[in-house]
């Protein structure tokens, strides 16, 4: 008699047995970004919520911290990053919101795509929204705090810092989406994991704006880059496992 066909499936997920070409992969990523941006252009809920939240936080800090110029210069970068982080977290909570209503995420999981394309698409669309908010916040800070924020190196660290934060946030959202308390779960998971990149970004930003030389902030800068690279790898390696039931 033949052996029993029963096989315990040790693989934690179904394998993607056929790898798409690079062109196909990026077409799918573009499709997911197009879909998210198209929906947001119609709803405008995320951008408006992020805008109102960011303006509120900035104004509250400005009027609450009625400080002299030097103290204000010292706390400005901290306040700026608090605004970035809170606004990004608000945005990240909405990363898979469009997929919740009719379980559209399952629609993507049922299609013959490399699941990491979902992650890359979702990450890029969220990052675009975060950048739009930063484009609004930075000039606002310049006006309210009178700090010159338009240094290329400072803008680079803002982009790299928010890149890492959004990257980890998108990954953790794919875990939080399966829980009943998604809005609470995301910050609980995200804040401890993202602490290194936030601290390093704040240190770098402070040093750049106070005119410190490269040697004084190179370690923090390198930490931001290494963090980003590590989490690109972690996300690509783990997303398949996290997104499947």
């Amino acid at each position: 008699m033949m052996n029993s066909p029963v096989s315990t499936m040790k693989s934690p997920m179904y394998n993607n047995d056929k790898n798409p070409t690079t062109g196909q992969y990026w077409r799918i990523v573009r499709t997911i970004i197009w879909k998210d941006i198209n929906i947001e252009m119609r709803k405008k809920t995320l951008i408006s919520a992020l805008f109102i939240f960011s303006v509120m936080v900035t104004l509250i800090f400005t009027f609450a911290l009625d400080l002299d110029k030097s103290t204000r210069d010292n706390v400005a970068v901290g306040v700026l990053w608090v605004t970035f982080v809170f606004a990004s977290t608000l945005g990240l909570n909405q990363t898979f919101a469009n997929e919740k209503n009719h379980r559209s995420l399952e629609g993507m999981l049922l299609s013959p795509i490399d699941y990491t394309a979902i992650f890359v698409g979702k990450f890029i669309s969220t990052y675009i929204f975060v950048i739009i908010i930063e484009i609004i916040i930075i000039p606002m800070f310049y006006i309210l705090y009178g700090i010159q924020l338009f240094s290329p190196l400072f803008l680079l660290i803002v982009l790299l810092g928010s890149f890492g934060y959004t990257l980890v946030g998108t990954l953790l959202t794919s875990i939080a989406i399966r829980t009943q308390v998604r809005e609470i779960m995301l910050p609980i998971l995200l804040f401890p994991v993202s602490m290194p990149i936030i601290i390093a970004s704040v240190q770098c930003s402070n040093a750049i704006l106070s005119g410190a030389n490269w040697g004084q902030f190179s370690n923090a800068f390198n930490l931001v880059i290494v963090y980003d690279i590590i989490f690109i790898g972690v996300a690509i390696m783990t997303f398949d496992h996290l997104i499947q039931e």
Partner: peptide, 9 residues
């Protein structure tokens, strides 16, 4: 059970 569609498309 679910349509797997997007309301705003």
């Amino acid at each position: 059970h679910h349509t797997l569609l997007y309301d705003n498309l």
